[in-house]
Write a protein that binds this DNA or RNA. Structure first.
Lengths: 256, 256
DNA sequence: CAGTGGTCTAGACCACCCC
DNA sequence: GGGTGGTCTAGACCACTGA
C-alpha cells in the first residue's frame, strides 16, 4: 500500500515524480519487479511515462531513500525489498506519548517573560533576534511534590496569547496552542544528551552543582516548518528513563 | 571541518556539487552564514560559482540532508546549525535509522561464552535459567579507533550458530540472524537511562571509575514475541546524543 | 506584487560495469 | 564497446512567501 493518500477523488496534485514513484513502489510491492531483479532503465521509464529523465531520477531517488532499491552506475537499479524495510515506527499513537510521564503531571511556572532566547540554549531558534514567550518552571508528578524535570519552554511570539491560560498549568502546552489557534504540530524533533546541570535546575531538583543532568530538547514544527514551540528539560539522571517501542509495519504479531 | 579529505594534493575529482556543498558547509561552520540567517539564494549561488541551478540545488540538498539548513519555498534556505552533530548520534530521521547506524561501525569482540545472563543486567531475560550466547565487546566507528560504546549482546540460544561469523564483526548482529535463520525482527523495545559506568566499560572507554554512562538497552522481538537478541550498551556521556524525528502522518510538508 | 524555491524539459558528456 | 547511471547545462513555468 502506498503511504500517500489517493483518497482524494480522482485529482492528484502531487508532483509527477511522486506519483511515478508511487506507481513503481506499487509494482515492487505486487512483485511485478521481483526482489533481486533489475528495474527498467531510466531511459525505458522515460519512454513509458513520457517524462524527462530528471523526473524519472527524482522518482527513483524516492525509492532509494526508502531503501527499496539500490542503484549502481553501470549496472542498474536493483530491487532490495518489496516492502520498505524502513518501516520501523514509533509505537506512539499520538504525540502526547512523547510525555513519558503520562498526562499525570503538572507544570509549575517560576517565571515568564517575552525576550530573545539565549542562543546557547537552543541555537536553532535563538539566532535571528526574534522574541519568544519564555516560560521557566518545574514539572511535577500530579499529586506528589517530586519534581520530574526543570523546564524551559519557548513559545513562538505568534502564539504568545496562550500566556494567560498557562498558569492553570494542566496538560501539554503545544495542545493548548493547537486548540486556540487552530493549527497543527506536524513534526517533533527531539534530542537527548547528558549535560552539566544548570544552577537553576540544580536548585529546583535538589541536586549539587556538579551533578550531571539529562537534557531533552524538543522542537515542535508546524505544517510550514516553522517552530511553534521549543523546550529544554533537565532531568535528574537518577530518575530518568526513556522507553520506546519500534515496530516494523505491515507484519502481524501473533502475541499481545 | 569538512569530513571529506581535501588532503589529495590539489586535484579534487569529486563532483562539483560536492565541492560546492563543502564550501558552503565551511562557510556555515566559520559563521560567514550565521545560524538563523538565510543563505544566498539559488540564483546568487549560481552566479558566484558560475554553475547551473541544478548543481546548486544538489549541493544544497547535501546540506539539507545533513540537517544544517532548512529550505522553504518562497522564503529561502535558513541555517539551522553551524556544525553537523559532532557527537555520536542516532539520527532517526526516517524512523528507522536506529538500525542503520550499525552499518557504519565495527564490533570488536572481547569475549564470548554460553551462560545464564546476570539477571541484574537484564531482568527481563535472565530470570528463567536459560542459557544465552553472551558476547562482550566494543563498538567503534568504522575507520577510527574512537569507541562508541561498550557492548554486551545476548543471543537466544536458538540462534547461537551465528557465533562463527561474529568475529568478522561488520554490520548489525540482528541482521545476520535474520538472514541466516530466515526470521524477522518485528519489534524493538529500547530504553535509555543514565547509570554508573561498569568497571569494564570504564576501562574500554578510557573513563574514570566514578563516571556516569548512558545505558541503552534493547530487546529485539520476533513475530512470536520471543526475544531473539538483547543488548546493553554503555556510552560515554560526553559523546552521546540521541536525536529522533516524530512525524504525524497524512499532512504535507511544505519544507525540507 | 516581486522574489524565492519546487518542478520539469531537452539535451550533453562522462565514469563505470559487463560482455 | 554498448549500455548503465552520474553529473551538468540552459531554459521554462509554477506555488508559495512576505512586503
Amino acid at each position: 500500500m502506498t503511504q500517500t493518500g489517493k483518497a482524494n477523488g480522482g485529482s492528484d496534485d502531487r508532483p509527477q515524480y511522486v506519483r511515478i514513484g508511487d506507481q513503481l513502489r506499487d509494482r515492487i510491492a505486487r512483485g511485478d519487479y521481483a526482489v533481486g531483479a533489475l528495474l527498467p532503465t531510466e531511459g525505458e521509464l522515460c519512454e513509458e511515462f513520457k517524462i524527462s529523465r530528471h523526473t524519472v531520477r527524482e522518482a527513483l531517488r524516492l525509492l532509494t531513500d526508502a531503501g527499496l532499491i539500490q542503484r549502481r552506475q553501470g549496472s542498474g537499479s536493483r530491487v532490495l525489498a518489496a516492502q520498505p524495510h524502513q518501516n520501523y515506527v514509533h509505537a506512539m499513537r499520538s504525540l502526547d506519548q512523547l510525555f513519558l510521564y503520562a498526562s499525570d503531571t503538572r507544570f509549575v511556572i517560576r517565571d515568564m517573560s517575552v525576550a530573545v532566547p539565549e542562543p546557547t540554549l537552543f541555537p536553532e531558534i535563538g539566532g535571528d533576534g526574534a522574541e519568544w514567550l519564555i516560560v521557566r518552571g518545574l514539572r511535577l508528578e500530579r499529586d506528589e511534590d517530586i519534581p520530574i524535570c526543570d523546564s524551559t519552554v519557548m513559545v513562538n511570539a505568534a502564539y504568545a496569547g496562550i500566556a494567560d491560560v498557562l498558569a492553570e498549568g494542566s496538560g501539554a502546552i503545544y495542545r493548548l496552542i493547537e486548540d486556540r489557534y487552530g493549527i497543527e504540530v506536524l513534526e517533533v524533533v527531539q534530542d537527548i544528551t547528558v549535560s552539566p546541570i544548570t544552577a537553576q535546575a540544580a536548585k529546583s531538583l535538589g541536586k549539587k552543582k556538579d551533578d550531571a543532568a539529562v537534557q531533552v530538547r524538543r522542537r515542535y514544527l508546524g505544517t510550514d516548518g516553522s517552530v511553534i514551540l521549543a523546550s529544554v528539560n533537565h532531568h535528574p539522571t537518577d530518575r530518568f528513563s526513556y522507553t520506546m517501542h519500534l515496530r516494523r509495519e505491515g507484519a502481524k504479531r501473533s502475541w499481545v
